[in-house]
C-alpha cells in the first residue's frame, strides 16, 4: 500500500469517527434495572473521590443500550449469557488434570466460595502481583489441578469467569486502590489518559468526554466494567474484558496490548475503580 493510499484511508476513518449528537443522544437514566423481578441493581452512583470533576455521575453501560438490549438483561432465562454460565458451572464440577481434582473438590459450592470475589478484582497477591480473575483460575488449574491453563480469551475461560462473577451479582464494585495496589492503579490511570494510535485518542476522549454521544452508530457509554464478562449481541457470544479493551485500543489504530498482560491488568484496576459503587452486573448484555 502506498503512503498516499494510507493517508486517505486514515482520513476516512477520522471523519467517520466524528462524534455525533443525533437521535436520542441521552442515555435513559430513568430506567431501573431489576433482574428476575427481584434484584434491583445500582446502575448510577456519585463518583468516587478520585474522579471528582471528571464525571458528574458514574453510570453503568446498561443505561446506554437501547430498550430491547436492556430488557435482555432483566431475566436470566432470556439473557443468553446464562447458556455460558451453565457451561461454567458444569466445568466447576468437572475433574481435570493429573491431580484428579475439580474446582468443587477444593472450593466446595461456587455460590459460597466465590461470593464477593468479582467485586474486589483485580487485586494484589501475597507476592505483590496484580491478578485478574483469569490469573487465579489458571493458577489453580496449572499448580493445583495439574491441568492445562485456559487461554485468556477462550470459551472455557469466559464461561468460568461468568459463572464466578455471577456469585457477586448485585454487590457493589469495591476494588482497593491504595497500599500495594496504588502503583498499579497509577499505571492504569496513566494508560487511561494516554492518547493512543493514529487517531490520537485516549480512553477518556471517548468514555469520559463523549459519553452520551454517538460515534458512528454506537452510543458511547462511560466504558464501565461492572458488567463483565458480557454477552455481546455482535458476536452472539461472551466476550472477556481484556478483549473489549483490546478492541478499543485497536480502534484508535494503535498496536494493542496483550490480553492478560500487565498493562491491561493495571488498566482493569483503574477502570474498575472508576465504577466503585456500581452493582456487579455480570453477566450483562451489550450490543
Amino acid at each position: 500500500m502506498t503512503f498516499r493510499a494510507k493517508k486517505v484511508a486514515v482520513l476516512a476513518v477520522a471523519t467517520s469517527f466524528a462524534f455525533g449528537n443525533t437521535a436520542v443522544a441521552e442515555p435513559d437514566l430513568d430506567a431501573v434495572l431489576v433482574i428476575n423481578d427481584e434484584l434491583e441493581m445500582v446502575t448510577m452512583v456519585d463518583p468516587p473521590a478520585h474522579l471528582e470533576g471528571a464525571l458528574d455521575k458514574v453510570i453503568s453501560g446498561w443505561h446506554f443500550r437501547d430498550a430491547a438490549t436492556r430488557k435482555l438483561e432483566t431475566d436470566d432465562f432470556e439473557n443468553p449469557a446464562f447458556i455460558h454460565v451453565e457451561q461454567g458451572l458444569t466445568a466447576w464440577e468437572t475433574v481435570e488434570g493429573s491431580e484428579g481434582e475439580s474446582c468443587a473438590s477444593c472450593h466446595g459450592s461456587i455460590e459460597e466460595s466465590m461470593k464477593g470475589l468479582r467485586a474486589v478484582l483485580p487485586k494484589v497477591t501475597a507476592d505483590g502481583e496484580l491478578w485478574s480473575m483469569e490469573n487465579y483460575i489458571n493458577d489453580c488449574r496449572e499448580n493445583r489441578m495439574g491441568a492445562e491453563p485456559w487461554g485468556w480469551n477462550t470459551g472455557p475461560m469466559r464461561d468460568m469467569t461468568a459463572a464466578i462473577a455471577l456469585q457477586s451479582r448485585g454487590m457493589p464494585v469495591n476494588v482497593a486502590i491504595d497500599g500495594p495496589a496504588q502503583p498499579y492503579w497509577e499505571q492504569g490511570k496513566e494508560l487511561y489518559y494516554k492518547r493512543h494510535g493514529l487517531l490520537d485518542l485516549s480512553c477518556a476522549s471517548c468514555h469520559e468526554e463523549n459519553n452520551g454521544n454517538y460515534i458512528r452508530a454506537d452510543h458511547l457509554s462511560q466504558g464501565q466494567i461492572n458488567g463483565f464478562p458480557v454477552y455481546r449481541l455482535k458476536q452472539s457470544n461472551m466476550i472477556s474484558l481484556h478483549n473489549r479493551f483490546f478492541g478499543c485500543v485497536r480502534d484508535t489504530r494503535a498496536e494493542s496490548y496483550e490480553r492478560g498482560g500487565p498493562e491491561f491488568r493495571a488498566l482493569e484496576l483503574y477502570v474498575a475503580s472508576r465504577g466503585n459503587g456500581l452493582s456487579v452486573e455480570a453477566p450483562s448484555v451489550r450490543n
Binding site: 500500500m1 494510507k6 486514515v10 467517520s16 494510535g197 493514529l198 485497536r250 494503535a254 498496536e255 494493542s256
Partner: peptide, 19 residues
C-alpha cells in the same frame, strides 16, 4: 506498530456504517 496499515476491506466496512 503492527496495526497501523489499512486494508481496503476495513475502510469499506467503516464507510458502510454511514449508509
Amino acid at each position: 506498530m503492527q496495526d497501523m496499515t489499512y486494508t481496503r476491506r476495513e475502510t469499506l466496512v467503516i464507510g458502510a456504517g454511514g449508509i
